Amino acid sequence: MLFVNLNSFNNQDYERVKEATEFLKNTDLTATPLGRSHQDGERFYVQTLEYTTESIDNFQFEIHNKRLDLHYIVEGEERIDVSPDTSYTGLAEYNSDRDIQYVQEPQNINQVLLHKGDFVLIGMHEPHRTNGFITKPSKVRKIVLKLGR
């Protein structure tokens, strides 16, 4: 599933998706080290996370200007809220070192429920918040592939 607003769709942004899914298929994702790994310059890196999900309301929406986020669930389940509305109001200045800006909650929100083996691709400038539980807190191991141009 690819969910995107046509006005913000850029074919160039998605050229690395095939490479990313091949990485997921051919890597032991239970053994990737926590934190950042598999760096390929500015174009690609892996962020491995482990946490227990919480109420989605505990988290702020964020956007990225340099990279797509491909969230893949290795273990557990998680709710992610995503908005196709790329007209957002910042809550803080953009942090170029971390490629992140926290933004106000958008009016239009789509809930994405991910289970083991599922992934969602979140485009640049698409507000999203993660780490939400679906029905109850769940221990999650997640791979976030950060895909640059």
Rank of each mutant, 00 (worst) to 15 (best):
M1V: 06
V4N: 01
V4H: 09
N5H: 08
N5F: 05
F9G: 04
N10G: 08
N11K: 14
Q12D: 15
R16Q: 14
V17T: 11
V17D: 13
E19L: 15
T21D: 01
L24K: 00
K25L: 01
N26M: 13
T27Q: 14
T32P: 04
P33Q: 12
L34S: 09
L34F: 00
R36K: 15
S37C: 09
H38P: 07
D40R: 13
G41I: 10
R43V: 15
R43G: 15
V46Q: 02
Q47S: 08
Q47R: 10
Y51I: 02
I56V: 02
N58F: 00
N58V: 00
N58M: 11
N58G: 03
Q60P: 07
E62Y: 02
H64T: 04
H64R: 02
H64N: 03
N65H: 12
N65I: 09
R67W: 15
L68F: 11
L70M: 15
H71K: 05
H71M: 01
Y72E: 01
Y72C: 05
I73L: 02
V74I: 01
E75C: 08
E75M: 04
R79D: 02
R79H: 03
R79K: 14
I80E: 04
I80R: 04
I80W: 00
S83G: 04
P84Y: 05
P84S: 13
P84C: 05
Y88C: 04
L91K: 12
L91R: 10
A92Q: 14
E93A: 15
S96L: 06
R98D: 04
R98L: 08
D99K: 03
Y102V: 10
Y102H: 14
V103H: 06
Q104S: 12
Q104W: 12
E105Y: 11
E105V: 07
N108Y: 09
I109C: 03
I109G: 02
N110K: 13
Q111I: 08
V112I: 15
V112R: 06
L114K: 02
H115F: 07
H115Q: 04
K116Y: 06
D118A: 11
F119Y: 15
V120A: 09
L121I: 15
I122K: 02
I122G: 07
H125V: 06
H125Y: 07
R129G: 09
I134G: 12
T135K: 10
K136D: 03
K136F: 06
S138P: 01
K139H: 14
K139I: 08
V140P: 01
V140I: 01
V144Y: 12
V144N: 14
L145V: 06
L145H: 08
L147Q: 01
L147E: 03
G148Q: 03
R149G: 10
